[in-house]
Design a protein around this nucleic acid. Structure first.
Ligand SMILES: [Mn+2]
Ligand SMILES: [Mn+2]
Ligand SMILES: [Zn+2]
Ligand SMILES: [Zn+2]
Lengths: 140, 140
DNA sequence: TCCTTATCAATAATTATTCTAAATAAAATT
DNA sequence: AATTTTATTTAGAATAATTATTGATAAGGA
């Protein structure tokens, strides 16, 4: 993996990247920090932030924002949307259906240039919905 | 306008709401603060935050998040997406084309319950694109 | 009226993130 | 190889947006 721009693939960057690939669960910077620390105890949170920034700047990973919550990071480079569970906080990749793209989905102002298109769905994940149902049936 | 829940429509809340309706340009909390302050010099930024929170909690306005930037607020309750200009920071409402809704646009995990569906487009607004073109043609 | 709840504004605190500065390391140049 | 330059890491300080706390004030209901 080359980073370009005179950026080097350092051990820290490699670990950060590996961790993201091993567990594609959209961890936060702090999550990544804790995971990398297991194998590289001397690493600092600031370095993890730097690595995540460099890697996303170079296009190897994507920064995913969930409202005002801490940013999460995603190694899936295919176009996709995100589902955020409001109960348990899980973030899942969701595939965009065929033909769902900026120019098709919204009426863009004439002359605008599109750089990015984001689709986010918020709600309750199947697991949380199931639990909720069980609880409400018990109290009924 | 009733807020429900025992929440009152106070003068501060009314001003905050009015300001949002007068200029539907997706102002930040600080923008709203500055605008309200003109007519209500004693108001504090914290109160503006409280009002924005109460109003969005009650569903009268929508909190719009632009990456990690400060939240913006929108009085347009119709379903719509947002276009963010990466050059000048403008946030524009964009209409969703017919049939663009969560269940149609993405392959949701089976059993998930949708609460919200957000579409964001990032890029350069027509004005910035025009300026850019003029500049590049001048230097060419 | 008395009691409860809601609100406001000031300020402190929190949180995520970025910046600073010194130390280290790799790459490029001599 | 030695020197110079550039990139990187780290710890800790700083920042910016937002939230929580608190004490004072104001409604609303019994
Ligand atoms: Mn993803
Ligand atoms: Mn809007
Ligand atoms: Zn869940
Ligand atoms: Zn613009």
């Amino acid at each position: 993996m080359k980073l370009g721009d005179g950026h080097r693939m350092t051990p820290q960057r490699r670990e950060v990247y590996e961790v993201l690939m091993e567990h594609p669960d959209h961890p936060t910077a702090t999550d990544v920090f804790m995971r990398v620390k297991e194998r590289m105890p001397a690493i600092s949170l600031a370095t993890v932030y730097n690595c995540l920034d460099t890697l996303s700047g170079a296009g190897f990973i994507i920064q995913v924002n969930v409202d005002r919550e801490p940013s999460r990071y995603c190694g899936n480079l295919a176009p996709h949307g995100h589902f955020h569970c409001e109960k348990c906080g899980t973030v899942l990749d969701v595939q965009l259906k065929e033909g769902v793209q900026a120019s098709k989905a919204v009426k863009l102002p004439r002359g605008a240039v599109v750089e990015r298109f984001e689709v986010a769905v918020r709600g309750y994940c199947p697991q949380c919905v199931r639990k909720q149902k069980i609880e409400s049936s018990r109290s009924a």
